[in-house]
Lab assay of single mutants.
Amino acid sequence: HEITLHINGRRVKLRFRDEKAAEILKEAAKKGLDEEELKKLAEELWR
């Protein structure tokens, strides 16, 4: 699955395995994680 989040006016595509991962990524984006941090988090969730 993929999700596209808008971060600092940019579109960031993240891959994720399940809905739980999608929710975690959305929450992290709301908390203000930047693009690099979100990509790292997405990679961690993928494993």
Rank of each mutant, 00 (worst) to 15 (best):
N8F: 02
N8W: 01
R47A: 15
R10A: 07
L25E: 00
V12G: 00
L5K: 00
L41W: 04
K39F: 12
I24H: 06
D34Q: 14
A28G: 09
L25P: 00
E2M: 08
L25T: 01
E44F: 11
H1T: 08
G32A: 05
F16W: 05
E43V: 05
A22V: 11
G9Y: 00
E2T: 12
A22I: 12
R47K: 14
V12D: 00
L41T: 02
L25C: 03
D18G: 09
A21V: 05
I24Q: 10
R10T: 10
A22K: 15
W46D: 04
L41D: 00
H6T: 13
E43Y: 06
G9S: 03
E44A: 09
H6C: 14
I24D: 04
R10E: 07
K13G: 03
L25S: 00
I24S: 06
E36H: 14
R17T: 09
I24K: 09
E27K: 09
L5G: 00
K30S: 13
E43P: 00
I24R: 07
H1I: 12
W46F: 06
E35K: 06
A28H: 08
A29K: 03
D18N: 09
A42K: 00
L38M: 13
R15H: 07
E19H: 14
A42P: 00
K30A: 14
K39R: 13
V12Y: 02
L38R: 00
K30H: 13
L38K: 00
G9N: 05
L25W: 06
L33Q: 07
D34A: 11
L25H: 00
L41F: 07
F16A: 15
E19L: 11
E2G: 03
G9E: 04
K30W: 06
G9W: 00
G32E: 04
E35M: 09
I3F: 05
L41E: 01
L25Y: 03
D18F: 04
K39D: 04
I3L: 15
E43A: 07
A22L: 14
A29S: 07
W46V: 03
E19M: 13
A42G: 05
L41M: 10
A29I: 11
R10I: 12
R11S: 15
L45R: 01
E19K: 08
I3D: 01
F16I: 15
L45E: 01
A22W: 08
K39G: 07
R11Y: 14
A42N: 04
D34R: 10
L41P: 00
L33Y: 13
K40G: 08
V12H: 02
I7M: 05
A42D: 01
T4C: 12
E35Y: 11
R10K: 15
I7F: 04
E27M: 09
H1L: 11
D34F: 07
I7E: 01
G9D: 05
L45F: 04
K39E: 07
E36G: 12
L33E: 05
A22H: 08
E35I: 15
K40N: 11
W46E: 04
K31E: 14
E27S: 12
F16N: 03
K13V: 15
E36F: 11
E27D: 12
A22Y: 11
T4D: 09
L38E: 00
H1M: 13
K26S: 09
E43D: 13
K20F: 11
F16D: 01
K40L: 13
E37L: 11
A22N: 04
G32D: 05
E43S: 06
E35P: 09
R11T: 15
K39I: 13
E23R: 09
H1E: 08
A22P: 05
E36R: 11
G32C: 05
A29Y: 11
K39Y: 13
E43G: 05
A28Q: 08
E43H: 06
K30C: 15
I24W: 04
E35H: 09
E43L: 07
A42R: 01
K20S: 14
K13M: 05
R15I: 08
E23C: 07
K13P: 03
F16G: 05
E37Y: 10
R47F: 14
I7W: 02
R15Y: 09
K13S: 10
A29L: 09
W46P: 01
A29R: 04
E44S: 09
R17V: 10
D18H: 05
K13Y: 04
E36L: 12
R47G: 13
D34I: 11
K31M: 15
E27W: 05
R17P: 07
E36N: 11
R11F: 15
A22G: 14
D18Q: 03
E36P: 10
G32I: 05
R17M: 15
N8E: 08
E23Q: 12
E44Q: 12
T4P: 01
F16H: 08
A29D: 02
E44C: 08
R10L: 10
D18R: 01
E2A: 04
W46Y: 06
A29Q: 07
E19P: 12
R10Q: 11
K20P: 10
E37P: 05
L25R: 00
K30G: 11
H1R: 10
I3H: 02
L5N: 01
